[in-house]
Amino acid sequence: MKIKSLIISIITLFVIWVLLNMKLSTEVLISGAVVSVLVGLIFCYTCGIFDDLKLNPKAIGYWFLYIFVFIGELVKSNFDVARRVVSPKLPINPGFVEVKTKLKSKLGRMILTNSITLTPGTLTVELKDDTIFIHWIDVKGENMEEHTNAIVSKFEKYLEVIYG
């Protein structure tokens, strides 16, 4: 299914072109369509990065839900950082922990690790197959199951529906 990736990347390029121009006149739309089809054909003819993306209504609903969960976690993580930086005793307890993910697709793993980097107190250091190594600023729990439950599970249940 290479054609799905091609179509999604062409649509993405066209949307970026329209947002950069911010007007909907005819010549802008025609030149943007021609250029985005050409660039998509040249650079994404055999790439398969969007193949795992599911496009049924349930997945799209979970996609919006995921965006809201992600923005909430981002704001929470920033207040967490602010609390740690401002408090005079510097309450940190850092360490490197190892967690497992159940996701199979590459794009899903990439989005999972990038989300982990932007959530409270965690930073992805290494990704190898289904093992993720995380630098955690305040380590809680003893073994790998507890770490996985604390860090990965809140995103994984949405991404499993979107990417499978």
């Binding site: 940190i92 307890n93 850092p94 360490g95 490197f96 922990v97 190892e98 290494e126 190898k128 190594f133």
Partner: peptide, 13 residues
Amino acid sequence: KADVTVVDELEDF
């Protein structure tokens, strides 16, 4: 690494 670092599972890997 800082002295307060409690655990490093990446080093073995």
